[in-house]
Write a protein that binds this DNA or RNA. Structure first.
Length: 569
RNA sequence: GCUCCUGUAGUUCAGUGGAUAGAACACUAGCCUUCUAAGCUAGUUACACAGGUUCGAUUCCUGUCGGGAGCACCA
């Protein structure tokens, strides 16, 4: 990275370190932003230096202030209490930051590749089940992490691992075969049809042991290659896969590699047999387990007592595939935090059996409803399809209200992008460790901290630029950007590369969302208070150059969140 | 019972070992003869509780209480 923000911080640190006059750990020096704009642009708290210099932080700040000679990006220094407040050089800052953005364009904020090859696995939907807003959070989070990591300079393989076999499939097929065999195939929404069957099956299996046994029989038949059920499975599996394809297409999400549980089941069983032979795994109550007690992780079940496979059985073979065939340096899995314990066990198991690779779970809390958790059994799940439909309707209404003269086609196209941005943003604005309590009413609002607000900010900039017609943005004199609002915006723009690095390091796209919203807010205030088109010609050009940069950063950031912008809305 | 996550404004969320704890929604009052009012400006209200570490704790530690989740044949 060689961004302006780094140069600024480097100069500040060097100035402070130089003034101290003895060896200090520069990494311990913090750079923060003062609470009030008038107090300076950046500040360094002096608390850390008290141990070294053995005088009060206030005194340190005062003494250092006199020793620092402003140069380069630093215009002046003030001490205020225990803080050293730095004022940046207004003559250098705007040109440095804005030229950088202009030059790098859509790559502004990106970090140079470090060649690390990682696989990010996300979505992992189960076939023969409904696709609801809980699954949506995973997709939105996962795909933005893929984008973020690529921007962060990693080589990323975006992987999906589809649960196309297992007890849920068996239950659905059991119900289909037993109660709906003679029904005509649904013409459309076949995936959702299976979801309904699954719910029915779950309830029936809970109601009676007999049903449960029958469903388990179906699973055994599937695993032993029974012709009838295998054919039924193949057909219905396609129904679900087509549904998923449609959803990914709607969301604009692409995977580099699809894995299926069905392709790793047999290799997984072989691996378990091998582990038994090597005495790494052992038998317990008829099942096969690996004892992780000495790591405080209890025991992980690798194979059922009836010999059929578990999630872990298949996951073993998947891990082998990932590391050996794809030669990745690290494997990340985006999952619901309810599976955290299992994954801790599983990653430890990989270590024990010899895969000493970088692995991490990117866990997030799940999506609930105000009345509690969604469950197929209770039938209170909010399907993605329904959610998207509602959002689309609302976005169309809002768009029509504002643009009565627009052709139907344009309304539709714009509304879809608005609806998607609202959906995606609502899934990403909360940090991963926060459960999302889904509220349709709240989701339908396009005001405030939402995706549409960010899109709207971009359209306002577009609108100004359209009206500007001719301009001399390229040769703008940045020294004319002297308003406080302008300085604030420029510093905010300069911080973008840092935000990218922080958000990536913590797997937190929500930090990026927060930043983009703050940037948009700052622009909106500026927009309200400072005229752009009506200012004097040379000032106008400088301001146009500034808002072009603001737009660029908003677009770059939104792209990482998977959000498209629109020309007008 | 054990483990993990969590408790900040009426609601949904940010945030930090230190300068006055920020937003959004909702509510109230202003602002469209001025670049799109999906906007802007102003106002009201908050760190669950009790100890400890520290010059300083909303932040770290311990405990209590509350919410969510996980802990062997589901994924």
């Amino acid at each position: 990275m060689d961004y302006a923000i780094e140069k600024i911080k480097h100069e500040i640190i060097e100035a402070v370190a130089g003034a101290v006059g003895q060896e200090i750990d520069k990494s311990k020096l913090e750079i923060t932003r003062p609470p009030e704009p008038g107090m300076g642009d950046f500040s360094v708290p002096c608390f850390y230096l008290t141990k070294l210099l053995r005088i009060s932080p206030n005194q340190i700040a005062q003494e250092l202030k006199d020793k620092i000679r402003p140069k380069g990006m630093i215009k002046s220094v003030q001490n205020l209490g225990p803080y050293l407040n730095f004022y940046l050089n207004d003559k250098l800052l705007p040109a440095k930051v804005l030229k950088e953005i202009e030059k790098k364009g859509s790559a502004y904020g990106a970090i140079k590749s470090d060649k690390e090859k990682v696989m990010i696995e996300y979505s992992q939907p189960n076939t023969h089940k409904e696709f609801h807003i809980g699954h949506l959070r995973n997709v939105v989070l996962g795909s933005s992490l893929v984008n973020l990591y690529r921007f962060f300079g990693k080589k990323v393989i975006a992987a999906n691992y589809i649960g196309d076999i297992g007890s849920h499939v068996a239950k659905t097929l059991w119900a289909l075969d037993k109660f709906h065999k003679d029904e005509p195939e649904p013409a459309e929404h076949k995936g959702q049809y299976l979801g309904k069957l699954y719910t029915e099956a779950v309830n029936l299996c809970e109601a009676s042991e007999e049903n449960k046994k029958e469903a388990a029989e179906v699973q055994k038949k599937l695993e032993s290659g029974d012709k009838y059920f295998t054919a039924l499975w193949k057909k219905t599996r396609t129904w679900s896969l087509e549904e998923f394809d449609g959803i990914y297409k709607t969301l604009g999400v692409k995977f580099d590699k699809f894995f299926y549980e069905s392709e790793v089941e047999k290799p997984g069983k072989l691996m378990v047999a091998e582990l038994l032979e090597k005495k790494i795994a052992e038998r317990s109550q008829g099942a096969v387990i690996i004892d992780l007690d000495k790591y405080g992780l209890k025991q992980l079940l690798l194979l059922k007592s009836d010999g059929s496979s578990l999630y872990s059985t298949k996951e073993l073979a998947l891990a082998k595939l990932k590391f050996e065939k794809y030669k990745i340096d690290a494997s990340y899995v985006v999952i619901d935090s309810r599976q955290s314990f299992y994954f801790k066990q599983f990653f430890k198991t990989l270590e024990v059996i010899g895969f000493k690779k970088k692995t991490a779970l990117i866990a997030y809390e799940f999506v609930t409803l105000a009345e509690g958790a969604m469950s197929s059994r209770k039938g209170n799940v909010v399907l993605f399809e329904d959610f998207f439909g509602e959002m689309l309707k609302a976005a169309e209404e809002e768009t029509k209200k504002r643009h009565e003269d627009w052709p139907e086609e344009e309304v539709k196209k714009t509304a879809e992008k608005i609806a998607l941005s609202a959906i995606k943003f609502s899934m990403i604005k909360s940090g991963r460790s926060n459960a999302i309590v889904f509220d349709m009413q709240e989701a339908l609002s396009f005001d405030g901290y939402t995706g549409p607000y960010l899109q709207y900010t971009v359209t306002r900039i577009n609108s100004i630029l359209r009206k500007a017609e001719s301009n001399n943005v390229k040769s703008a004199d940045y020294l004319l950007l002297t308003e406080q609002h302008e300085k604030e915006l420029i510093i905010k723009l300069a911080q973008f590369p840092e935000i990218i690095a922080d958000a990536a390091a913590e797997f937190e796209p929500s930090q990026l969302a927060q930043y983009l919203f703050e940037l948009a807010k700052k622009f909106s205030s500026y927009y309200q208070e400072v005229p752009i088109l009506k200012s004097k010609e040379n000032i106008r050009d400088a301001r146009l150059a500034l808002i072009v940069s603001v737009r660029q950063v908003l677009i770059n950031g939104l792209a990482i969140l998977g959000i498209d912008t629109v020309e007008r809305m």
